[in-house]
Design a protein around this nucleic acid. Structure first.
Lengths: 85, 85
DNA sequence: TTAGTATTTAGATAGTTATCTAATTATCTA
DNA sequence: TAGATAATTAGATAACTATCTAAATACTAA
């Protein structure tokens, strides 16, 4: 769960997640929303992937990223457990 | 909200929050649960305080830290907004 | 008011993270 | 199959973070 909180600690990565809420996006599409290079974006995506927050699927020339909704309940539980008395 | 996620990204700081779930604790009491120095602990507490996750109150010689429950709903909303479609 | 305890702040350093450019790998299409 | 596009990986660097020791501040109690 440590990798999850680490992944969420960066505002760019959180923005990527909110972008993916609407629909799956290729790296190129995600790239349009950020000022940094593709290499940097690739690192951020890797961080999200290692935290199991996103999943990837190649569709021809593109790799699409999408939210891995199955882990969100776990994350939420962990989050609650920090605060509830 | 950035400071909140940053604050939560460190496992020691998350452990501090879980310790405070049971009851308010002085710095010395919190210290017993960690291997690092008081100076380091003080920095972690400062990070939590700046994120508005804890509040402090001096009681004589001691400073007690407690969960600032009033912000948790905000944090939770922000958290949900990352994931819900 | 002085000695002791509690906590924070200052200053330094090592490790981590975000970022870049350049090189590499994977796929598509002409 | 060659050239173009998509994405990742390698290698470097600057900024940030966690940590330490030492010094400073705040309070208590003798």
């Amino acid at each position: 769960m440590d990798s999850v909180f680490k992944a969420l600690s960066d505002p760019h990565r959180r923005k990527i997640l909110t972008l993916l809420r609407k629909r799956d996006l290729s790296v190129t599409e995600i790239q349009k929303h950020f000022p940094f290079t593709g290499a940097t974006l690739s690192h951020h995506l890797d961080t999200l992937k290692r935290a199991n927050l996103v999943i990837t699927e190649r569709r021809g020339q593109f790799i699409f990223y999408s939210l891995n909704t199955s882990v969100f309940e776990d994350v939420l539980k962990s989050f609650y457990s920090l605060f509830s008395h």
